[in-house]
Amino acid sequence: MKKLFRPGKFESLMFNGFNAVFMILLMVVTLYPFINTLAVSFNESQDTLRGGIYLLPRAFTLKNYVAIFSGGTLVNAFFISVARTVLSTILNIFLTAMLAYALSRTEYVFRKFITTVFVLTMYFHAGLIPVFFLMKGLGLINNFMVYIIPTLISAFNLIVIRTYIRTIPESMIESAKMDGAGEFRIFIQIIFPLCRPVLATIALFVAVGAWNTWFDTFLYCSSKQELSTLQYELMRILYTAYAQGGSAALGSGGLAADQAARMVSPMSIQAAITIIASVPILFVYPFLQKHFVVGLNVGSVKE
């Protein structure tokens, strides 16, 4: 292409201008729904139904949150969510790292076999019904452990950690062995502390995953209210509000929260739960984004 003007100064300026405007629009489109939800969650419920809430609440109130926390259901769900997230993250990280260490030992005879068995699980799934029967057979239905046990190890994280362990100088392990340390002791005292950066990253991703899931509650624990999680409660509220068709259902029918929530419309409850459910994520987000680079490298790690 031949240039009409002097070497594209004006054109370059135009491009940068449009690009900046586009990026600002992108940020607005990403952030607006949050800010709007936040505003709705702090707005008087009846007032919200009149519409027209954008960035700030019109009639400020804490009632929506009070309604959520006064009904025992959602408080309990909150604690179940926290418990499952903490427990499964700790166990997941410890066991995955331990296995990753064993599989990183080049002299280990079953290394290849065990790695293959795990890697294949990334591509093959038995399917919903057979897994459901397995859980039933193991007595995990309506059992808190169903949140922990099935997700103890992820093959993907295993490979990531193993790859990281391989970068640790062999001489450190050799010298520990010379001093008479066993494999388990080497893992606990040398490998685990040295892997802290990668483990921190994976822990955050595992925690976010555990916090966000609702499907296992839905499938395995839906008949036991004490085991309900926050995401599942949010899903129930959403589903009853929207399943009947578009936005038609703003009535209070089928609300998951207790009677205390009756005075508050599902829309306000939904907004408030959305905020409660995303606050922990927003809280760990600054820590997460420091480690994105790791997440990006893992995309290229394969066996």
Binding site: P33, F34, N212, T213, L238, A241, Q270, T274, A277, L288
Partner: peptide, 13 residues
């Protein structure tokens, strides 16, 4: 990093 529940809630709104 947000769950699909939250995202669908936002989409529906």
């Amino acid at each position: 990093f947000l769950s699909w529940i939250i995202v669908t809630g936002i989409v529906a709104n």
